[in-house]
């Protein structure tokens, strides 16, 4: 599926094909900003802005989206997983625009979920986790997990492998959630200290993985 960069959040919410194929995108979009922001804001604008606590980037990471970037000189494609470089910083060069988001078909029967804890003033995530879990023959065949709000950029958890081939019991999920924060240099600000943020991220990871697994068929 291809989404034009200037598609508004409202248009995402109204799209039936999107809801059918990537229900997580609609689910997350409902939590972005407020009604006015969703009416005017666009998915491409939000992703290119690269707020380190935005809700959509981790969704793009677990879905393994590809971003099409265009400048006068031509087009190039960059995986979402290589797009975010720092707070408000991406691989976009001066004169280059994000024009399209390409989404590969999700694995058959994959369940997806997002869990986040919002900062009361801005609504941005203190910590949020997106998860995708696909099940085949009764065991987990694929698991993806990504975070936002925790560190300088959204990031994909490198180690979900321990879940593969298991039924995804709570202990295994808990261990993956725990491992995902190993070595992460978490943000520390007036809204949440480092330790609490890491804790929230683990809770979000566990909740997102558990829910994604429950949704997988």
């Amino acid at each position: 599926m291809r989404i034009g960069a200037t598609t508004t959040y409202r248009e995402l919410l109204d799209s039936k094909p999107l809801r059918a194929k990537y229900p997580l995108i609609a689910e997350v979009t409902e939590h972005i900003g407020d009604l006015q922001v969703r009416n005017a804001g666009t998915i491409g604008g939000g992703l290119a802005h690269a707020d380190p606590a935005a809700d959509m980037p981790p969704v793009m990471l677990v879905l393994d989206a590809t971003f099409v970037l265009q400048s006068k000189g031509g087009k190039r494609s960059v995986p979402a997983r290589k797009f975010f470089k720092g707070p408000f910083t991406t691989v976009l060069k001066p004169g280059e625009l994000l024009v399209e988001i390409r989404l590969p078909g999700p694995p058959k029967g994959a369940g997806m979920a997002y869990a986040s804890f919002e900062q009361a003033a801005s609504g941005y995530a203190l910590a949020g986790a997106a998860a995708l879990v696909a099940v085949a023959k009764g065991v987990i065949a694929r698991a993806e997990l990504a975070f936002t709000g925790v560190a300088e950029t959204p990031f994909l958890a490198p180690a979900t492998k321990p879940l593969i081939g298991t039924k995804g019991d709570p202990d295994a999920i808990g261990r993956v959630a725990e491992a995902a924060m190993a070595g992460v240099e978490a943000n520390d600000d007036i809204h949440a200290g480092r330790e609490y943020r890491l804790h929230l991220a683990r809770v979000a990871a566990r909740r997102a993985l558990t829910e994604a697994l429950a949704r997988a068929t």
């Binding site: 720092g86 707070p87 408000f88 900062q119 941005y124 300088e152 943000n187 520390d188 600000d189 007036i190």
Partner: peptide, 15 residues
Amino acid sequence: GARLLKGTAKQLTES
């Protein structure tokens, strides 16, 4: 900058 400053400044300085 309560939420944004530290990360941005770190990024600018380190880069």
